[in-house]
Design a protein around this nucleic acid. Structure first.
Lengths: 144, 144
DNA sequence: CATAATTCCTATTGACTTGATAGAGATTTA
DNA sequence: TAAATCTCTATCAAGTCAATAGGAATTATG
């Protein structure tokens, strides 16, 4: 399951995407519109900023905007920031590989083989879904 | 990421599969062979039993055996017991559906659409991998 | 029938994670 | 200079995870 943080992050980013790229949007606006606890959202956006997914402008009339075109921000990108690797095991993570603590021989591990296939399938989907496409969908459904 | 519990469960089940179906195998034997904390394994096997994945025989010369043919026990079956639903969100879980707490309209939710596709991809893989095939792989690699 | 070997059950523990909040600091614009 | 905003660090309660403990119930066997 994805975390609450991930949900908030995705909703906030979809909000930014829908708003378009005119001017930075303030945390409070996003928080109120999307019903996200303000201080929590603050922390989330800060993390997203560190990885370049959003950009910030400080001071009066400051706020957040997307760090790159919405079509270049995938669901995988976001989930990796909020929830860590997509993989079901460190030993099959592409972005954050690590040997399993008690693994005797990785190349033969039958569990690993299954988890690797699962990771590839999930990554393939989540990397292909981006904010632009998601916002487009919403627009078509009349939800925006 | 899957839990340690899931790893132990899969390893224990693979051990049972490899041992064949001659007689019930005792917890202590599995624990020692697979280096799994005994008491923890006890609890895990008990859970697996409740769902029929393993069967137990109590008393002297008791122990555990697979609850059905190894080819009919998928990785998905096991992970659902130890780690809960495969889905990344309750609203896309097939085995344990539940509405998201703050969901306004499920049919339009862009997040849901992506998570649903991800679930289907993962489930397709994990339901297709079973203990018999995994044990077979190990045998071919000379690990058994 | 008594005993030893085993699974079954409930409770507890410490470490860590999650979701959320508080408050002061730094920066920018008007 | 003041107001509005992001930035940072610290803290908290509740929950989850991994592991352990101890005894109750069950069964094969001498």
């Amino acid at each position: 399951m994805i975390s609450q943080k991930a949900r908030y992050a995705l909703r906030a980013l979809l909000y930014l995407t829908a708003r378009g790229d005119v001017a930075p949007v303030q945390i409070s606006e996003i928080a109120e519109s999307e019903k996200i606890p303000r201080k929590f959202l603050e922390a989330i956006l800060l993390e997203l900023k560190k990885t370049g997914i959003v950009r910030s402008h400080r001071g009066r009339a400051g706020g957040y905007s997307l760090g790159r075109p919405a079509k270049d921000i995938s669901f995988a990108d976001v989930l990796r920031v909020t929830d860590g690797p997509l993989a079901l095991s460190p030993c099959v993570s592409v972005m954050a590989y690590r040997k399993c603590d008690d693994c005797f021989e990785e190349t033969v591990c039958a569990i690993r083989k299954a988890l690797l296939a699962a990771r590839d399938a999930t990554a393939q989907i989540l990397e292909s879904r981006n904010l632009a496409a998601a916002a487009q969908q919403l627009r078509r459904s009349g939800a925006l």
